[in-house]
């Protein structure tokens, strides 16, 4: 390969890594928003809880890092289930109010975690083989970032299988398209929303577990991810394929712009680009024209 092209190629690979981080952060939000229409402002805090779940599992039970992934999933899914039952389920017919309610939840969670664990950062240990770098020929990449890319692919395949190859998936898609007709054929839409919310929360938990190894664990870490997650969902328009496309586009452009300019200016350019996209496709790239309540 021509030497001068190598850094550019490298930045594209880095873009893939950025994209996968944003996508894995946005997966739970995509599912919750795309299916139930709930704007979950507490999504960042679910990610944070996933990170703390991993920290606790490791610090108190000595769980190896890779086993923390399913633990984070289950713990945060149960927390999501709890909030769905006591709060969110009363708001399905008032999507805008879910925004305020879940924002309140996010404040509670941040403060609650701060009270229990304090404001000092926590660290999650990763095993030897994840702390090094892997040579990709043109560049080196940390093995943790490669794990995140792989994990994102695994989660997407899993979600795709669940949505398009199972009876549960038929029910989810039917409820999303036409809740009344789905109910007329025996689908309990309340239960579907409940399961979907728990699933989305659990996915945020997995993302949090991955991020706990990438950076320090703090009560406020959720806000680092929530903006990008929302941008991915809004730009994508709601469906899973939209989020995949949006995060790929955003990650690559971010990395591409960072190659020519500095990172802050790249972020600025990226946001401008998103505004332009939304100017012409206000409902997102893959707008969901489903019947909502």
């Amino acid at each position: 390969m021509d030497y001068s092209w190598a850094p550019l190629m490298g930045s594209l690979v880095l873009g893939l890594s950025i994209a996968s981080i944003w996508l894995v952060a946005a997966l739970g939000l995509t599912i919750i928003y795309g299916t139930a229409g709930v704007i979950n402002m507490a999504h960042g805090e679910f990610i944070m809880l996933g990170a703390y779940a991993a920290y606790c599992a490791q610090a108190y039970l000595g769980t190896p890092f890779l086993l923390c992934l399913p633990i984070s999933f289950v713990v945060v899914a149960l927390i999501g289930l709890f909030f769905e039952r006591v709060l969110i389920r009363y708001l399905y017919h008032r999507p805008l109010d879910t925004l305020l309610a879940t924002w309140g939840v996010s404040l509670m969670l941040t403060q609650g975690v701060r009270m229990i664990f304090g404001s000092s950062p926590k660290y999650v240990q990763v095993p030897e083989f994840l702390s090094g770098n892997v040579s990709l020929g043109i560049m080196n990449m940390s093995s943790l970032r490669i794990l995140i890319v792989l994990m994102t692919v695994v989660l997407i395949v899993g979600i795709w299988y669940l949505f398009y190859r199972t009876y549960f998936g038929i029910k989810i898609r039917a409820v999303t398209q036409n809740r009344e007709m789905a109910a007329s054929f025996g689908v309990n839409s309340e239960r579907i929303y409940m399961c979907t919310f728990a699933l989305g929360a659990g996915l945020a938990g997995v993302a949090g577990c991955l991020f706990s190894a990438l950076a320090i664990v703090l009560p406020t870490m959720g806000s680092n991810y929530v903006v990008e997650s929302f941008l991915v969902v809004v730009t994508g328009g709601g469906p899973l394929v939209g989020s995949i496309a949006a995060s790929a586009m955003m990650g690559e452009f971010k990395s591409f712009f960072s190659y020519f300019f500095n990172s802050t200016f790249a972020q600025f350019l990226l946001f401008v680009l998103i505004v332009i996209v939304l100017r012409f496709r206000p409902n997102g790239l893959f707008a969901n024209t489903a019947v909502r309540r």
């Binding site: 038929i170 898609r173 039917a174 036409n178 109910a183 007329s184 489903a290």
Partner: peptide, 29 residues
């Protein structure tokens, strides 16, 4: 959803089939 399980098949006005689902998925539903 429990009424339909009692054995009522509903064919609504305007058909209201699930346009994004396949024919098979509509019938399975």
């Amino acid at each position: 959803h429990e009424r339909s399980r009692c054995g009522i098949g509903y064919i609504p006005q305007g058909r209201q089939i699930f346009g994004k689902l396949s024919v098979r998925e509509n019938i399975l539903l």
